[in-house]
Design a protein around this nucleic acid. Sequence first.
DNA 1: GTGGTCTAGACCACT
DNA 2: GTGGTCTAGACCACC
Lengths: 132, 132, 132, 132
Amino acid sequence: MIIQLDMQSELPIYTQLVNQIIEGIASGRLKPGEPLPSVRSLASDIGINLHTVNKAYTQLKQDGFIHIHRQKGVVINPDQMPGFTEPYKNKMRGELKPIVAEAICRGKSQEQLLQEVEQIYREIVHTDKEIE
Amino acid sequence: MIIQLDMQSELPIYTQLVNQIIEGIASGRLKPGEPLPSVRSLASDIGINLHTVNKAYTQLKQDGFIHIHRQKGVVINPDQMPGFTEPYKNKMRGELKPIVAEAICRGKSQEQLLQEVEQIYREIVHTDKEIE
Amino acid sequence: MIIQLDMQSELPIYTQLVNQIIEGIASGRLKPGEPLPSVRSLASDIGINLHTVNKAYTQLKQDGFIHIHRQKGVVINPDQMPGFTEPYKNKMRGELKPIVAEAICRGKSQEQLLQEVEQIYREIVHTDKEIE
Amino acid sequence: MIIQLDMQSELPIYTQLVNQIIEGIASGRLKPGEPLPSVRSLASDIGINLHTVNKAYTQLKQDGFIHIHRQKGVVINPDQMPGFTEPYKNKMRGELKPIVAEAICRGKSQEQLLQEVEQIYREIVHTDKEIE
DNA sequence: GTGGTCTAGACCACT
DNA sequence: GTGGTCTAGACCACC
């Protein structure tokens, strides 16, 4: 799996990493039980510090997306993804609200906005799984 | 208009301010041409630093949501809201993508996600405009 | 509040810090809303690195014991302590089980063990709040 | 006796092994003088490294729970379990204290906490000894 | 001033 | 080899 980081972004590097791995899972490119590179190898591959990778992995572990298997390394949670919990739902709605509000100001109709979301949904799910 | 700030939030205060004003515009509670409180009075009203309000107003001005006149003070852009520009579109899609991806991982179907967005849309637009 | 660290302990320093702060809250020496020293000052006071303090604070924040107020610094959660949740309950029972088992092997009766726990409970709660 | 290991746990595997054997003794499923599997066979049974089992056995021996004979192999200490020594007492209290403190913060009364400990005590002692 | 992030390098426990 | 911890020093955003 290719990791694309924007070092100029306002988003912390570890957050970008977390997002990309979640997108990888959502798209099916990363499957439950599949191993992830070690902290050190991923860090050297993408040219960042191992602590930054570690922070991303730790957050993914706390949220239940991955397991950190002692000495076997890191794997995508083989059993189940974290559920649609109430705290998560609130977090999601809180993130969505300002985005929707700005879209409304800028003239997007409800239909247009839903189409936009639908397209993003399909882009993620239909990502060609053969391409890595 | 009531401003609700969460001092524990990870979002900077000025960003929360920006978001709330944009939501006010989206909901219709704030209308084009309508005056906003001065930096000084808003800051003292909600008990935050002048600089923080100033930063929020500056960003809103840069994005085209408000005008800042030397004498007339601050008003909602009376002519037109900023449009659905290409850079904004990219920004929006970049923000939406990780949210959608995580929702997919957590088991949301496309229909459920669209309903969620639709509900948020309606909540913003249908906010009772009588209540301030 | 005095922090006592054992640099030779098997427990990570940041865990010892977390424990001591939780004990401080349990004993009433640290009250809801009360400020905690800044990362830097606490680190220099007890002679450890600021990142270690930061890690402890971050964990306490995630567990809901403290709030990290932007720029105001760190305060004990003024509203409510984290509840007796199911995951916590499981964690607690998992920690308690091997301790109880070993006590049984070493000849402790149920009554003796309960007295031990009771004494610890009282020691924490009845800590003289005048002494700091 | 069935050994249940959690490879995702933060506890080292050898510690989990030690705990489970102590629980086995506490519950009566493992009786004084009873033989334990050899390092080699236990390791292959539960699919872990020889060294890991060895480390667990070594710790149990040091604490006085088992004897390791050159010929007879490993047996539960036939004479007497280790006593309620002063160093052990301190260790136990040190482990108990943060658990009790957190329970207090999370709203457990002394009675509730004692009931919790009592229940764990009974669960260990009353484990059906017929089931292995 | 505050906390947050990133880097760098070291040591350790575990397997 | 793995991840976990600690230290050190730097820069940044926020207020």
